[in-house]
Design a protein around this nucleic acid. Structure first.
Lengths: 173, 173
DNA sequence: AGTAATTGCTTAAAAGTTGAACCGTCGAAC
DNA sequence: GTTCGACGGTTCAACTTTTAAGCAATTACT
């Protein structure tokens, strides 16, 4: 079959997207590196944990929430654990499982650095978008995510990140 | 001043964006790694060169076009040079300058792998967007890029990537 | 129960990225 | 035409990411 090339408009949009995503990730990484001493992904680990029930999440659930591989997460959590902002606990109901827990110190880091982070995101993204554009951005991105995750490995060839599991909570009460 | 947190809609959009960009970069990297044996950025180096006059560009211009640091580009070009898809030439008019040139072999790689790449991009992004959404995506992303590059280092704190230079062409004719 | 396949997570080696320091021009002021 | 600051590009060490392989606990099957 003959290739369906991108139209001129699609090409412009695609290039704008690539440029924006590179610049944005770069700006955010730089800002967080300065003020929190960690890259964006690591900050996201803390942020995600802070919103989880009991501030804890199983490694695989955390990886799925963050859309990254378990391996990458292992590395990140190991580093954050050294910093003292995250602690690992074993999963009582599954001997293989490991649970990442946000420490008080981690929560403090987050609280201290969140304002600067939001300000950067605002300045780069939301301060110049209309409410309609915000809505459109969400719809577009949700669509992209679904297209990639939904088709069971046609867009993501080569198996992608094939994961699925039940969770494992363990509140003490 | 008290932090201007994100509204609920902005938060949803932001999270959707983060998820989509991670998944998308991952899907594209994987696809290109399989079919072209290189990550997305390296493919972009070849693609950008292929569109430049005389298929050549100065390192700094190439870095600026790709929105990456010179250092990162040096590394990429060194690898691509080893692969044989790019060659370096000295800049005649500026002894310091270095020019990256797309080789025939590089052009061939590009030609062979472009269809698969476009297909992936289509499948993940454009096949489920209306023409209006494509336009909106371009506007939104252009705005983000301008916000980051335009403010001379307020959004991108710590100096960012402060570059500016004149070009240096050298067609043999 | 006993074994095979699966799952959850980590590890190891190779590849890529970052940030600062470095080196050889270049340009402009004297 | 020297000298000094800026520029273009590379290099190095520290860090992060990737891919595949590994290990142990669990599940499914019989």
């Amino acid at each position: 079959m003959t290739t369906r090339w991108l139209t001129a408009e699609e090409q412009r949009a695609w290039r704008a997207y690539i440029a924006a995503s590179l610049l944005l990730e770069d700006a955010i990484d730089r800002q967080l590196q300065q003020e929190a001493g960690m890259p964006h992904l690591y900050y996201s680990v803390l942020a995600t944990l802070s919103e989880a029930p009991d501030r804890r999440l199983r490694m695989t659930d955390l990886a799925e929430a963050l859309k990254i591989t378990r391996s990458r997460l292992t590395y990140a959590v190991t580093r954050l654990e050294k910093d003292g902002s995250v602690r690992r606990e074993g999963c009582p109901s599954d001997g293989r499982g490991s649970i990442a827990v946000l420490t008080e110190e981690g929560a403090a880091v987050l609280e201290r650095t969140a304002p600067g982070h939001v300000e950067t995101v605002r300045g780069a993204v939301f301060d110049h978008l209309t409410p309609e554009q915000v809505g459109e951005l969400e719809r577009i991105c949700t669509g992209i995510a679904e297209a990639i995750q939904g088709d069971g490995g046609r867009a993501v060839r080569a198996g992608g990140l094939p994961w699925r599991r039940r969770s494992c909570s363990s509140s003490p009460g």
